Simulated scan of single mutants.
Amino acid sequence: MIVLVTGASGFVGSAIAEALCARRIPVLGLDLHPPRNSWPGFDFVTADLRDQASLDAALTGRRLTHMIHAAALTPDAAFEEANPDLVLDVNLLGSVRLLQAAKTAGIRRLLQLSSIAVYGNAAPEADGLYHEDRTTPTPQSLYGIGKYAAEMSLRRLAPSAGIDLSILRLGPIFGPHERASDSRKVSSPHHQILLAALEGRPVTLPRAVPADWCYSRDAAAAIASLVSSDTALPDIVHIGAGEVTDLPDWCTALAAHLPLSWHIDAAAPTIRYGYPTDRPALAIQRLRRLVPGSHTPLPRAAADWLGHIAHSPKETLS
């Protein structure tokens, strides 16, 4: 088993590569830029999702068996408006090009990372949650539209390519390896709050922002378990925490380790959040049947993230 992880220099891709290598599963990371981190069993190749020849050359002769497609542009509204063609070229057409390269390379299982953004303004089900088999996506942002179009395109093309496809829709994520970048313009509020606390700056929240915030190491561990499973996977699986927490909860967890002054002021926030209203949580019963376990509580996540920073010289938050 050799797993290709695209976007391996980014936030989620790095977390997944780390989780796979911890299980001693060989990983080939693919990205436009070299990663800041490496692990035993990790190799890396440079390629561009906008260039089919680049992808074909990167995958040829690597004996790859599985792929986790985590590479994406996660733009804010201003970036979407200024670069709509780039957003769709990477998130939609890049996924299609990658499938074509995977077919040629002999890859047989593909986990396509999608997003809660595909649901857009959809109403939740009676239990207040989004469900894989019942909630109809109605994406609003160009990011959500591109992700949903990529889902539909790959579901159309994967069977004829002989590739076993599963769509993983991720909820809001925070944790180690996170930073703002050209491909991910706005980091999670948790990351912004941690950076402010480390720099001794006070924090002003826009609101409490309750959501099923998922620690990145939990999400990565679940994805690593799914890609290495011997059983057939459902066509869509939610990746989420299964529990709602908010930003005051995170501030309280961090304040046990760092001096932190915070309050809520919607008129003058220092913490950016890309959604004007709060979103329903993802139902994760399907995930829990496949990968039993529980999420990391916020106090333990705060301690773990700070420990990761302290023991990772190359790790930076910005």
Rank of each mutant, 00 (worst) to 15 (best):
L247I: 14
A219H: 08
C251P: 12
G242E: 00
A224G: 11
A220W: 07
D246P: 03
T231M: 07
A219N: 06
A224Y: 07
V227H: 04
V244Y: 03
G242M: 01
D235C: 00
Y215L: 11
Y215A: 12
P248W: 09
D235T: 01
A241Q: 12
I239N: 09
S216L: 14
L247Y: 15
S228K: 07
A220R: 09
P234R: 13
A232Q: 12
L226T: 08
V237K: 00
W250S: 04
P234L: 01
A232W: 05
S228I: 02
P248L: 08
L247G: 13
T245H: 15
L247W: 14
V237L: 02
A232H: 11
V227R: 04
D218S: 09
P248N: 14
G242S: 07
W213A: 13
S228L: 05
V237W: 00
I239W: 03
L233W: 01
H238R: 06
A219R: 10
G240C: 06
L247M: 10
Y215F: 15
I223A: 13
A241N: 14
T245G: 06
G242Y: 10
L226A: 03
I239Q: 13
V237I: 12
T231V: 13
D235W: 00
P248I: 09
T231D: 14
V244W: 03
A220P: 05
G240P: 03
G240I: 07
D212H: 06
V227M: 02
I223V: 13
A222Y: 04
A222N: 14
T231S: 14
W213L: 15
C251V: 10
D246R: 09
S225K: 09
V244H: 11
A232L: 14
V227E: 01
A222S: 12
V237S: 00
Y215K: 10
G240E: 01
A232F: 04
Y215T: 12
A222C: 10
D218A: 09
D246H: 06
A241R: 15
C214V: 11
D235R: 01
T245W: 11
D235H: 02
D246A: 11
L233G: 04
T231P: 00
A219T: 06
A220L: 03
V227G: 06
W250A: 09
W250T: 12
A241K: 08
D230G: 15
S229L: 02
I239C: 02
C214Q: 09
I236V: 15
S216V: 15
P234M: 03
